[in-house]
Amino acid sequence: MTDLRFGVVGLGARSRLAQHAHKPGEGSRIVAVCDPVEKQQLAARADYPGATSYGDHRELLDLQLDGVFVTTPDDLHEEPAIEFLRAGIAVFVEKPLAITTSGCDRVLQAAYESGARLYVGHNMRHMPVVLTMRELIAAGAIGEVKAIWCRHFVGHGGDFYFKDWHADRRRTTSLLLQKGAHDIDVMHWLAGGYTTRANALGGLVVYGGIDDRMDRSEQRFAEFVSNDNWPPLSQTGMAPVMDVEDLSMANLLLDNGVYLTYQQCHFTPDYWRNYTVIGTQGRLENFGDAPGGVVKVWNSKRSDYRADADEEVVIPAAAGGHAGADPRLVAEFVRFVRDGGATLTSPTAARAAVAAGYAATTSLRSNGTPIDVPPLDATLTKYFDNGQTRA
Rank of each mutant, 00 (worst) to 15 (best):
S15R: 00
S346C: 09
E218N: 11
R29C: 11
T348K: 09
D164Q: 11
I371M: 13
D377V: 03
S217Q: 09
Y161S: 10
I89P: 00
H266V: 06
T71M: 14
D105A: 13
L201I: 13
A391F: 08
I137N: 08
T261F: 07
P240Y: 02
Y161H: 15
T345H: 00
G192H: 14
G368S: 06
A352Q: 09
D185W: 05
V129S: 07
V241Y: 13
L204H: 02
A356F: 09
H57V: 00
C150N: 14
Y275V: 05
G143A: 12
L63K: 12
D304L: 12
Y383I: 01
Q109D: 15
E312D: 03
L254Y: 02
F160C: 12
L108I: 10
A319K: 05
L254K: 01
T381N: 13
V295L: 07
V145R: 08
P375I: 00
G324N: 09
V205E: 11
A110G: 11
V258C: 14
F267I: 00
E312R: 10
Y48G: 10
H322V: 07
Y259T: 13
Q219M: 15
L76W: 07
A355V: 11
R58P: 05
D255P: 11
V241A: 05
V258S: 01
F162G: 07
D185E: 15
C34G: 03
D308C: 06
L4I: 03
V337S: 02
V294Y: 12
R171G: 04
G192C: 10
G237R: 08
R365E: 14
L118T: 01
G115W: 02
V313P: 12
E59G: 04
V330Q: 01
S346M: 03
R106Y: 12
L61C: 04
A356H: 07
R335T: 04
T2P: 15
M214V: 09
R302A: 14
R117L: 13
R58G: 13
Q109A: 13
S366H: 10
G158L: 09
V295M: 03
N386T: 14
E26G: 04
D185C: 06
W189F: 09
D385W: 10
S363V: 04
A147D: 10
T261N: 08
T361Y: 14
V31Q: 03
A342E: 14
C265S: 13
E38H: 05
R16M: 05
D62M: 06
A46F: 02
A51Q: 06
D215H: 09
D326I: 07
L97T: 06
F287L: 13
T345K: 00
A378I: 08
R125T: 02
A13D: 12
H20T: 03
T361N: 15
L76S: 15
E135T: 07
L204Y: 02
P327C: 06
T236V: 13
D66A: 06
I142G: 04
R302E: 08
N199Q: 12
Y54V: 01
A356N: 04
Y271E: 14
